[in-house]
């Protein structure tokens, strides 16, 4: 699905690349988490995957970046819009402002794609049901909570039926309930098998519970890559400034006091932690 080979990207006027020699393959339907300290290149990866780097930010690039059969840096944003969806952290800024109800907001992207009204109606209804927004369909997007607005933002992108959904810290401004709503949707999408999800996220407990794979970035490079459970238990994350899940931290502290043997692998999810402490 995603094939990146020796990809580098420089923002305009910068000598240091924001992405430096990225090699990455992500198969279709995988739920892939991306972690790393601030300035590591996570957001730039999102922009590169969706074509905003270089098409929106300009700058220079080299290497290969393909999503499906689409050569992303050589395609226009208009061509990419229906195939690769990008969701940002600020839910308010993703509301178009040009539509008055949630239903019409979800239809906005489909209207821009020039789909027929019947098809727009069908996709909007399908997406409302998928994201569980039917009860809010006639409400103003501006009258919703942050979590609900983020769900509308995701729904608006999903209605365009992208093959790849890229999310840049979509839960950073949400409370635990809003975070749970977003993760449940992503789990449902990746679970259906069709949509590949790339999610930049600092809330490691949630990644541990839902992601198939975690990639760690530092200084524009991939430094760790593997299954979510393996990577999130890795002590190197602490040195990289990413941190660890609360479960891992608690277990590591107990292991340090030698109450539990060091041979036992550190937990990253609640279930694993329960087993660990039993």
């Amino acid at each position: 699905m995603i094939r990146i080979k020796d990809f580098c990207y420089w923002y305009p006027g910068q000598d240091q690349p924001a992405l430096d020699g990225i090699d990455l393959e992500i198969p279709e339907g995988q739920f892939c988490g991306v972690v790393g300290p601030n300035g590591a290149g996570k957001s730039t990866l999102c922009y590169a995957l969706s074509g905003f780097a270089p098409h929106f930010f300009h700058g220079t690039w080299e290497g290969e970046l393909q999503v499906g059969k689409r050569d992303v840096p050589r395609s226009t944003l208009g061509e990419l819009a229906g195939e690769i969806g990008l969701v940002f952290q600020n839910s308010f800024n993703q509301i178009s402002g040009a539509r008055f109800t949630v239903r019409e907001e979800i239809a906005f992207g489909l209207e821009n794609l020039g789909l027929k009204r019947k098809e727009i109606e069908r996709r909007v209804e399908e997406t409302l049901a998928l994201i569980d927004l039917e009860a809010l369909a006639e409400r103003s997007p501006f009258a919703l909570s942050g979590g609900q607005q983020q769900r509308v933002a995701i729904a608006s992108i999903l209605a365009m039926q992208p093959k790849l959904l890229v999310l840049d810290e979509p839960t950073s401004q949400l409370d635990p309930r809003g975070t749970q709503e977003v993760f449940k949707i992503l789990d449902k999408l990746a679970g259906r098998g069709g949509t590949t999800v790339v999610l930049v996220e600092h809330k490691l407990e949630w990644l541990a519970a839902f992601a198939d794979r975690v990639i760690t970035f530092s200084q524009g490079r991939i430094v760790l890559d593997g299954s979510a459970k393996k990577i999130l238990a890795d002590e190197k994350l602490l040195k990289l400034g990413v941190g660890q899940t609360q479960f891992t931290q608690a277990a590591a502290a107990v292991q340090k006091k030698k109450f539990i043997p060091r041979s036992r692998p550190l937990p990253v999810t609640l279930k694993q932690a329960q087993k660990f402490f039993e």
Partner: peptide
């Protein structure tokens, strides 16, 4: 960017 992601300038 959000508008571009929704094919506004297509």
């Amino acid at each position: 960017m959000a508008l571009e992601a929704r094919a506004f300038s297509r």
